[in-house]
């Protein structure tokens, strides 16, 4: 995986630096502990931001809570937005992100290939979304729509991506287009929608997506192509 720009990741990583720290005494004081001889700059722990991701995943596998917390910070945003665009419901999306990471903590020690962890996260979240959508379909008039008394939930179902506006005139048009795409996306069937999101928004390769949704790569390509054409045609009025 490319270290500076991995799929599903928010922020480019800093190039790997080393603690490179010979001043750390390590040992030798009479207590056998790690007094740092009054040197406040002696760095013992290398910040996780400076370490490669496989190492961080390995550490989380061995039960390092700090490493796991780093992985949550790095990937919760992407997973949340995938769930949100799949479910169009903020609190359900948050619940699924939470469930996904809790499953991850339990599965991590037995994960054979650490590089498979990020696709594993996305696969788990995607499956949970598709399962939830199937349940919704069986009970179409469940709380989400008019039966819902709380205004909060009605609010939580609309307005994905209404960020603050910068330059009112051109921003307004941009905003309107993004909102149109966002709404149009909700009319794409869940399976193709998941594939399109994973490719176009989360920037996974066809091969990764095939592994995530557990379908042949050719099926994935077909789904994404059809979703693209559907969306492109639906966006015609906004050109």
């Amino acid at each position: 995986m490319d270290e500076t720009k991995a799929p599903g990741r928010e922020h480019p990583r800093q190039p790997g630096k080393d603690a490179g720290d010979e001043s750390f005494p390590g040992m030798g004081d009479s207590q056998g502990g790690f007094q740092q001889d009054g040197d406040p700059d002696a760095r013992v722990w290398m910040p996780l931001d400076e370490i490669d991701e496989v190492t961080i995943i390995n550490r989380a596998q061995d039960g390092d809570v700090e490493a796991f917390e780093w992985l949550i910070s790095e990937y919760q945003g992407g997973l949340y937005r995938l769930c949100l665009r799949m479910l169009n419901d903020r609190s359900e999306a948050e619940d699924l992100v939470q469930e996904t990471f809790i499953s991850a903590w339990r599965a991590l020690p037995d994960l054979k290939v650490p590089q498979a962890f990020i696709p594993w996260l996305y696969r788990t979240a995607t499956n949970k979304c598709l399962d939830l959508l199937r349940t919704r379909k069986r009970r179409p008039e469940q709380p989400h729509d008019e039966n819902d008394s709380g205004q909060e939930s009605a609010e939580s179902r609309t307005s994905i991506g209404k960020g603050p506006l910068a330059d009112p005139a051109s921003e307004y048009e941009n905003q309107a287009q993004m909102r149109a795409l966002s709404d149009l996306l909700q009319t794409v069937p869940p399976g193709p929608r998941a594939c399109w999101l994973l490719k176009e928004v989360h920037e996974f390769s066809y091969r990764d997506i095939a592994a995530i949704v557990q379908l042949p790569e050719s099926t994935v390509r077909g789904r994404i192509a059809r979703a693209k054409r559907f969306l492109a045609e639906g966006m015609e009025p906004w050109r």
Binding site: Q31, G32, G33, Q35, V44
Partner: peptide, 9 residues
Amino acid sequence: TDVEHRALG
């Protein structure tokens, strides 16, 4: 324990 102190001690 804090790594700066000897754990067994």
